[in-house]
Amino acid sequence: MFSYPSAEAVLDDLGDKVVGGLVDATKATKVDLTLYRETFPSWVADHGERGLANWLHDRLWSHLRRGFVDIDSVTMADEGVLREIVVGMKYRARVKRHSAHDRIRSFPTTAALAFWAQSDTLAGMEEVRLGFGYRWDPELREIGSALISLRDGLGADAIWAVEVNGGAGEAGGTAIAWTPVDPSLPQIDLYSVIAETDEEQGT
């Protein structure tokens, strides 16, 4: 059975350069969106959700590509619709926008379903698939914190998600802080459940 690594272990393995690169790229993408709004407000207003998401994905990917270029452990694959970040021999990530409840969306292609399903391999050759991205506020249409998440299945809730933040460190790098995100629990209306049960029993 696949053993899910903890968020702390994953962040340690990725290292400050990778995590800091995601934080910096997310901040730069926020700046791009602000500039885009100030320069072409009607264009941004006319964007459908998918179009704006694609535009933001392109901007974030461009910033990640520049930020990761000097990190030897990182390889970036950009083959049309397939964009992946490989860190070392263990981690493979896709850039995704996360909802307030850390959900992601993707067309359920065979490749996407296979990617998001964590699977067993030979001992020592496990590959962990991650979501690199940011939290999106659909009401304000604003980028929130940079996020790293782990899930098992495309439609599944996140096993864990962490917000990663940082500022300039003493050596000029990015000092990383991370905050675990509590999983979202289903909301149950007990009154309606009781009412339905009473109705079925004729009470």
Rank of each mutant, 00 (worst) to 15 (best):
S3W: 02
P5M: 06
A7H: 09
D12R: 14
D13M: 07
L14Q: 05
L14F: 07
L14C: 05
K17N: 09
G20N: 04
V23M: 09
D24R: 11
D24Y: 01
K27E: 14
K27Q: 11
A28H: 03
K30L: 02
V31A: 09
D32G: 02
D32R: 11
T34G: 04
R37P: 03
T39R: 14
F40Y: 10
S42Q: 15
V44N: 01
H47E: 11
E49S: 15
R50P: 00
R50Y: 09
L52N: 01
A53Y: 05
A53K: 13
A53E: 06
A53S: 15
D58N: 13
R59D: 02
L60C: 04
W61P: 01
S62E: 10
L64P: 08
R65G: 00
R66W: 05
G67Q: 08
G67S: 10
F68G: 02
V69I: 07
D70Q: 09
D70I: 02
D72R: 14
S73P: 03
M76R: 03
D78S: 14
G80N: 07
I85E: 05
V86P: 00
G88D: 14
G88L: 14
R92M: 13
K96W: 01
K96Q: 11
S99W: 06
H101F: 08
H101W: 06
D102C: 12
D102G: 04
D102K: 07
I104V: 15
I104N: 03
I104P: 04
R105F: 13
P108H: 09
W116Y: 13
A117V: 03
S119N: 10
L122E: 13
A123N: 06
A123F: 09
A123I: 08
G124Q: 08
E126T: 12
V128T: 15
R129G: 00
G131Y: 00
F132Y: 10
F132D: 00
F132T: 00
G133W: 00
R135I: 11
P138C: 03
R141N: 04
E142Q: 12
I143N: 01
R151E: 00
G155D: 15
A156I: 01
A158D: 08
V162F: 03
V164M: 11
G167K: 12
G167V: 13
E170D: 14
E170F: 10
A171W: 04
G172V: 07
A175Y: 08
I176A: 05
A177E: 12
W178K: 03
T179Y: 10
D182A: 15
P183K: 10
L190K: 06
V193P: 03
E199N: 11
E199C: 06
E200G: 01
T203R: 15
